[in-house]
Design a protein around this nucleic acid. Sequence first.
RNA 1: GCCUGGAUGGCGGAACUGGUAGACGCGCACGACUCAAAAUCGUGUGUCUUCGGGCGUGUGGGUUCGAUUCCCACUCUAGGUACCA
Length: 1189
Amino acid sequence: MEYQFREIEEKWQDEWRKRNTYAVSEDKSKKKFYVLDMFPYPSGAGLHVGHPLGYIASDIFARYKKHRGFNVLHPMGYDSFGLPAEQYAIQTGQHPAITTKNNIERYREQLDKIGFCYDWSREVRTSDPAYYKWTQWIFSVIFNSWYNKETDKAEHLDRLIEKFENNGTYNVEAALEEGWYKDLLNSSDFPLFGKDFCGEFTATDWQSLNNEQREKVLMHFRMAYLADSIVNWCPALGTVLANDEVKDGVSERGGHQVEQKLMRQWSMRISAYAERLLQGLNKIDWSESIKEVQRNWIGKSEGASVRFQLNGHAEYVEVFTTRPDTIFGVSFMTLAPEHELVLKITSADNKEAIEKYIGAAKLKTERDRQSDVKNVSGQFTGAYALHPFTGEKIPVWIGEYVLAGYGTGAVMAVPAGDQRDWDFAKKYDLSIPNIFDNTDISEKAETSKEVKLCNSQFLDGMIHSDAMPRIIAAIEEGDFGKGKVNYRMRDAVFSRQRYWGEPFPIYYEDGIPHLIDTSSLPVVLPEVDKYLPTEDGEPPLARAKGWVYVPNSAKDSNKLSNAQSLPKKNEDPRVESRINSNQKAPHPLPLTKGDAGDSNNVRTTASQFGADDYASQSNLIFKTTGDETRAEDDLEDSLEHNSEHFATSLEEAGHIWKTSNPKKREFLKAHARNMRKEQTQAEKLLWEKLRNKQIGYHFRRQYPIGPLIVDFVNFSHKIIIEVDVKIHETDQNREYDISRADYLWNLGFNVFQFTNEEVMANIEDVISRLSRKFPLSLEERSGVRPPKIDGSAKDLGNTNFRHLEYNTMPGWAGSSWYFLRYMDANNASEFASRDKIDYWGQVDLYMGGAEHGTGHLLYSRFWTKILFDHGHIGFDEPFQKMINQGMILGRSNHVYRIIGTNKFVTSEKKDEYKTQQLYVDINIVDNDILDTNAFKKWLPEYENAEFILNDTGEYTCTFAIDKMSKRWFNVANPDDLCEKFGADTLRCYEMFLGPVEQSKPWDTKGINGVHNFLRKFWRLYHNSNNEIEISNEVASKAELKTLHKTIKKITEDLDRFSWNTCVSGFMICVNELQEHKCNKRAVLEPLVVLLSPFAPHIAEEIWEKLGHSKSITQAQWPAFDNAHLTEDEFSYPVSFNGKTRFFISLPADLSASEVEKIVLQDEQTSKYLEGKAPKKVIVVPKRIVNVVV
RNA sequence: GCCUGGAUGGCGGAACUGGUAGACGCGCACGACUCAAAAUCGUGUGUCUUCGGGCGUGUGGGUUCGAUUCCCACUCUAGGUACCA
């Protein structure tokens, strides 16, 4: 065969890998374009043909944009935390990390075969500690945030504390839970706030609180907060679920029962962003349906909250209504059974019935409650409320149809205007006062907003829109309530009682959660013996040995016990020193100049920088960390006057230096320069080797990193080489070395230490040891650090040890920000550098399924807004344009077995027998005809199958369109197709199927047509001996026309994301060129560039054969020249009364009147005029002539 | 119920701002080359027809010289969503 796609594809996939063809870097001379696919969860089943649909489309687009001169970011990664791997772990005991790793390898293999242009050096995996370190960091940012409604953004909690300190809650407008303060009211810890506390306190109040009390208050303000809330508890999965993970009362994953349960859980205050999430939809280019899903989810409704005083009680019932204009139609009220006032107001003679009703409601599952929709039910409490305008007594009922979770959990019932209220009133024989003019409400409620009101005092004669402002004003005037906007969206539950997720950067002390310092991140997922909850119902992480935080001093400087880098427990001196020592590590930086040249050439020992002075200096830093500017000024002073400075720990110093001003940076650089001049013998020797790239990588020497200066560093592989006189010479040196290693480790560096002796004695050995180590894989870089302390928190008791959070984060945590990480995937010191984020910016094209409307897509918009508010990124919407690829459905085939036998009957005759429908593997069915021999071999039980065939002697199957699933034996797998037809064919065929957004059944029949097209394409360039044969002759006019028509078509179609029509365009082009027998370079060379985004392998191969040494991916997109398309003649369709009758060829530049004249003179025209005079003639130049008779 | 899409040959689909409906591919039929098959190439392929033409883009109406395209009403269908006050 001429077109050897297997060889070609293998060759180029290899070459691309070798040449690093798809690596991109920030190139500010070029405009950027960011094309992103929703990263997959690496499931065990591997990819089927539906998955790559979107990937292929975006890949084509990315390649196209590259040809157009854009710098294109097109990365890929894995959403690798999640339930399936964990469920598998529970069943088999295999660590989810292993399952995940295997699945990822399989995915990668499959992806590689399709020839994508991903820059794999930017790969992210959400379960990689080097990645989730930053997920934890973002959690910390959110934890330290509150939502200031005044500025309408999230702000650092310090701003709030400052406000509290100065003015208490005066002028604090924060996004809070309704009635947040009740928690404090009931607490014995807060005697100070008294019985009448309603959430407001003074600066004096605040100052009188102790730390613990303050923490409790602040918890209510945080954007990530711990609170008792009613959550969806799924007993089968043993975890809580967010609202978007529950569908129809069962879990989305697995379809398990879900119950409502009051639990203490982490939540994210997404409700604070409701309005911004809603408004933001207007500035992004997403499909209307997804936007609508989000609008519904946010559920904004405008109306009023109204208070109804209870007769004979001090309390009132507050309701929310979107129809306050119908308030004069209120004839009763209904509270949710869970409403807090219910038991209080129920009269003695109704008590029994009410309790019974509540009890019955409690027993029902969410699903039962939802299926009972049509049967309204309720119970009278015996209490009455007073109508705010008329003073009438209104009976108060409870009813299941009122949900505790929406609005205030109470409604004012207007049976005339609401169908549910109407049903309720009918059932319990309550009055239905009519408030609508000329309207019959005896059969159903009137819900139109266009009907005039009556019996409504000052609202009489008005319709809804006129009455609204009037009634809200009246309500506010009378102080019964106020106009209000309500959102349905609730805060998102953020904790899961699961193992395979991100640990929280949180530890508990006396039940109060505290943040683990960001410098100690990541908190690495610990090993556990089982992936199940503990016997007393704690999440799996409670099983972890050493899942505790070890206090090491009276001060609040804590070290995470397992956040240490040396693997062998007994040899790791840090554990001991951390636990036993109250001393802090001194600052490692030798700030006095000229100390590098002492007798031993030792630059950095603790003794040199006066550890004794530490105590007097440390306050400086501690006091001022809240005020960055102040601290930096002080630091500056200390640098200049003392030339010595100490932070409390390396981490703190690192933090300060990171945010420091250029002056300090200069100081460090100058210091490093001095050190370079005064290298030791060993350093000089090693440098000679390193500078000649003897181990293959470029190193810098004596380079400042944070507050440190390291000997040799390679940034891209995160390697540091240190040469010291001796390692761990004294206790103090050792402590310093440890801190230093820790600091660098936390920045993601691997530190290799050699002694002077080692280097001097055998430099070659040192070099070869290093070369063996490189390049470091991602795993090696991030490594999993084993816990250092035996025994769980429980074993150790809570007196000396503080346990870490047992919950893990939900699946959407990692996926909410991954698009940012791709911009700077290997950054060990930040989640991504601001510089790179500013360059790559928003995702320009986001490709993925539409099923994430209320989950991932909402949460990532939410996190993006928080990061924006804090100034970490410069945009507040993550995905500018999104295209949702449709689902590819499977076409499954059925056979019919006669019940009780092993006989199978063809579908035509199936009704003659009593049969059972069975699914059959689509691979042994061709065009609905079953291969009976293959069927016998397919499963052992069919070995002796017999068949009743149709009249033509064939067995025909019926078919159905189902989701692709192993269960239906209808999975088409991309590997097989790549093997059979090649990746280029698969790519083109998937595009050719139809518009990407559309769902469509997979059908392999058409793939031959596309494959043939590529073979024809190949033949254009090759002679019958399969040798390339290209002429350099001048192309003919017709050939150039074909080419430029195609350039225009492909360019325009790609610009409007119409991949399918591009493929037809290519087919037309190839057919035409074949007709012209064209083999001219002037036509075929641009053409291969046009095709290369679609079929990169064949294009690359031909490009090389055409004599190019550079990859075709760097070729420029062919320029379109309209001159080749201009025609001298145009064939006008001439129609009479809109019906085309004949064609007439005329010069293209004729004016409308000239055309009209010629057409009317034409003899064919007179035939159709039948002697009548034309009433009107319409001429659209170069389009159409229409004669009206 | 509500929201958002969709409806065009035997099939997947094309027709971009109203201007030759059915591009391109599949399938099917016939033909060429072959002992034959495969592959390849060629021709035809909406439908009815008395061979003049008639009818055709879910249905009914409207706007227009002209409507698959715009407007109104409806039918069917896919997806989403809900005792949301």
